[in-house]
């Protein structure tokens, strides 16, 4: 058995009276794409805040590559909204992580520039975020995330704010990017189809206080082309069944 890149053991978190995370245990192996699927307000974003250390855990532990997580975090985090800085050009938004790490602006630009074509942003380096469409902004935010060259991506509902058509396009695009890069990712979503299409494994959370209701493996072969193949639809149906009837566990 390979080692885990990330492991959460019995993690819990409360905000005063509000019990948000009851008992969360999950693992992500290197190169794996894992999704967390759960109702709105379940505490999914809170899990990421614990990982990026903007919140402290109340109970449990988090291990990264087998060692307890402390100090500088090894994650590249993409917040729920694109969080692009309106005053920075796209190229300077994309290099933000490298700049914070101490790299010079010119070196960071040279490093990130070649990625623009692959992200469908060629020619938009000097544009400001306000000049881009929703899908392009999301790709720019993703470019900023992966150019940090961290060991793991944390994506919080990256396509949640997009219209259905753009979202489907972005899911296909991310899926095809996935096949070319050796990324490890944890994705938060409340979109069942998105979870099935993109993931190797899915954790389904209960409503607050969140526990892991079930964990399912998605055995669909890659490359995946069809968002709604019969095999995918069967898994979707099963997931929806679990989400809607959380008491009748399989």
């Amino acid at each position: 058995m390979t080692h885990n890149r990330l492991e959460l053991r019995h993690v819990s978190k409360r905000f005063g009276e509000l019990d948000v995370l009851g008992d969360i245990s999950l693992t992500v192996r290197p190169g794996e794409f894992v999704s967390i699927l759960g109702p709105s307000g379940a505490g999914k974003s809170t899990i990421f805040k614990l990982l990026t250390s903007s919140l402290q855990l109340d109970g449990g532990e988090i291990a990264f590559d087998g060692a307890p997580l402390r100090g500088q975090r090894p994650f590249a985090f993409m917040p729920q909204h694109d969080a692009l800085m309106p005053w920075r050009r796209i190229i300077d938004n994309a290099t933000l992580g490298l700049e914070v790490q101490g790299m010079s602006r010119s070196e960071a630009r040279a490093r990130v520039q070649p990625l623009f074509a692959e992200f469908g942003l060629d020619g938009f380096e000097q544009h400001y975020p306000a000049q881009l469409s929703g899908g392009m902004r999301q790709r720019a935010a993703l470019l900023r995330t992966i150019s940090q060259q961290s060991s793991m991506l944390l994506l919080d509902e990256p396509f949640g704010a997009l219209d259905a058509l753009t979202r489907a396009g972005m899911q296909r695009w991310l899926q095809s990017m996935w096949e070319h890069h050796n990324w490890t990712a944890l994705l938060i979503t409340h979109d069942v189809r998105e979870a099935v299409f993109l993931s190797d494994r899915i954790y389904v959370l209960t409503a607050r206080p969140a526990r892991v209701l079930t964990e399912i493996t998605v055995p669909l072969p890659r490359p995946r082309r069809d968002l709604a193949s019969p095999a995918a639809s069967a898994i979707e149906a099963k997931l929806l069944q679990t989400l809607l009837n959380p008491d009748q566990r399989t």
Binding site: S53, F77, A83
Partner: peptide, 23 residues
């Protein structure tokens, strides 16, 4: 300042002074 932008910078390991200057 957008909370998401600050959370993002914090996740990148930016100091308080850095967050002030950048965001």
């Amino acid at each position: 300042t957008d909370d998401d932008i600050e959370a993002l910078l914090a996740s990148m390991g930016a100091s308080r002074v850095r967050i002030f200057l950048l965001a």
